[in-house]
Design a protein around this nucleic acid. Structure first.
Lengths: 344, 344
DNA sequence: CTGAAAGCGCTTACAG
DNA sequence: CTGAAAGCGCTTACAG
């Protein structure tokens, strides 16, 4: 059993060179002679050498891994984003560490410790509701330029953020419903205090106003992105005396919950009301009726975030713009929205 | 700007003891005197000391992290399992590394390298379709006793596995439909070659046979756990001349796709056919109609897997049973299944 | 182009 | 109960 892995020493011995030379050959082949390169390659193969990452990390002060912080691991919204991140990281030899805000807090860990104890070289944060005290610590950390936000973000901070076109998506949504003849449009919001909720809600108000639509206060229904909140919002809609003919939900989960609850009360979508969401989850297409939604390319958001972070890790002292990136959205029109029937 | 973190040396200096003593105090407080303990604690606080994990890893040959391998990051099925794993790992100071089989292969990485380059102390593998060559390498690795499977597994290997009661779940499902009066029951399977597919399918055949039900070959429809396969299966069902009155799908995604496609063809669930799934995804409850399913407690599967792995990491040379654990399932009856109407 | 040597920050026998 | 010292496996100025 070759139970213990071989080390640089072993390779050096087999190749008949110093460990320094082996190290150089591996990390910077151009700098050594061709004959050395060949002998080292041969010795590496012979000894089945794998670099010890702990040793390299200790020496270079680089962990070669990145922390991705999710608000909640159990939310399927994030899975494609992780896929996108991993797609960019993995070929570069970087590992992806995952944690959730819940978990971090429950275990008494500190986020900044991921930097301080040399576990991670950078962070991609997908939680825009981080405790402000925590955010302050991150902002003042020496590693603050290796933190970026994706999807969500924190207002009044200088972290770059990769996000989708929230305003534009909302505008497209409202106009889609408008073009179908709807003049009374409701909005179910995300959680209070969330940046996405806020963006989408204010864009909704702007756009309905620009279109000269009536907007009663009770047509803006508080939600929180979840299925359950969608159900509650449907109850609110049902209770209205003057019911909007269309509803734009700030997330697909909201919209699905909304439709499910309507169905339980024998309302039909889109006959009684057109419903649309935001995100275009896989399931939107398979729901009954299929849900009209604003598609966010979550894979692309993940990839863009990883790419931006890697650039910052590679050149920590370069001046980087803090603009981040904005990923386009698109309308996916399906059967949950339809032409307004002429009034009964 | 205390830009560079403090080290054990710093703590030792402040506390007026040796680094050895600081190290001992931190890892094994009982072994030092109380006065030392107090002085060190004070010095740690004063210097805001965090252990450098790379250094510890190099010295102890422990990475203090665990790799979780998913077949595919974008599948929402896994998110709760990750939550469960993290819940157990995080308080113990272990980090969770995530990779997907796709990604690992695409980047030319080798799975075993996670051990060999000291990135991970153990693995939780959620992919029962790993390449057999890869599996062989893992089996023969010196670290093979720190690998466990969860949910899925590989037949004829000795890795322990944490899984749900697949047979029992299937039995419950078939009996639920039987009790509702159904005598012609179809099954949509998971992917060919998958252990779960196989377990559920053979249990389905056994149980229908035990109940003396007729089972035509075309009533067992090949699928692959996905929404899309569910749609195709529905087309197959529609094309049957003698249609089963109930369908047990090997996953919720299959069942949702199945129902969606039926709806497009103007069939109604459960009036025209009762449909049930396996998994009890969050969405099952919100679908229209709400989906009857066999609930797997994925949080618990994750926690159990993490617990089992940590025991093995803590005592690598102890004799561990390779039995794994079986997590109970339960029937969640909802509106997608109903009493068989007396024949038309 | 290459090697000798120092050192990254810990832990752990060993000795007292 | 505590300290001096070695060493985990790398990388990187420095010197040649």
């Amino acid at each position: 059993m070759g139970s213990k892995s071989s080390t640089l020493q072993d390779v050096a011995r087999v190749a008949g060179v110093s460990t320094a030379t082996v190290s150089r050959t591996l990390s910077n082949p151009d700098v050594v002679s061709e004959s050395t390169r060949i002998r080292v390659a041969q010795a590496v193969k012979e000894t089945d050498y794998r670099i010890n990452r702990a040793a390299r990390s200790l020496r270079t002060q680089r962990a070669h891994s990145v922390l991705v912080l999710l608000p909640n691991l159990a939310n399927p919204f994030f899975s494609s984003i992780l896929e996108g991140i991993s797609r960019h990281l993995s070929p570069k030899g970087y590992s992806m560490l995952i944690a959730s805000t819940n978990q971090v807090q429950a275990s008494g860990e500190r986020l900044i410790d991921y930097f301080e104890d040399a576990r991670a070289d950078g962070m991609i944060i997908l939680d825009g509701s981080l405790d402000s005290h925590l955010v302050e610590i991150l902002e003042n950390a020496p590693q603050s330029n290796r933190i970026i936000f994706a999807c969500e973000w924190i207002d009044n901070t200088s972290f770059p953020v990769v996000r989708c076109e929230n305003k534009q998506g909302t505008r497209i949504a409202v106009n889609h419903l408008y073009d179908l003849g709807h003049r009374k449009i409701a909005h179910v919001t995300g959680p209070d205090g969330n940046v996405l909720s806020h963006r989408r809600k204010s864009a909704f108000i702007e756009e309905t106003s620009a279109l000269n639509l009536d907007l009663k206060p009770e047509w803006v229904i508080d939600g929180d992105f979840s299925l359950a909140a969608g159900c509650q919002a449907a109850q609110r809609w049902i209770a209205l005396t003057d019911r909007p003919t269309a509803v734009f939900c700030a997330s697909d989960q909201l919209a699905l919950g909304f439709m499910a609850e309507l169905s339980r009360h024998n309302f039909t979508v889109p006959d009684d009301v057109s419903v649309m969401g935001f995100d275009d989850l896989d399931l939107a297409e398979q729901y009954i009726p299929p849900l009209t939604s604003i598609k966010q390319d979550r894979l692309m958001i993940g990839e863009a975030a990883a790419k931006m972070l890697m650039e910052r890790i590679a050149a920590p002292h370069a001046k980087h713009s803090n603009d981040g990136a904005v990923i386009p959205v698109s309308l996916i029109a399906r059967a949950s929205t339809a032409q307004l029937r002429s009034a009964a």
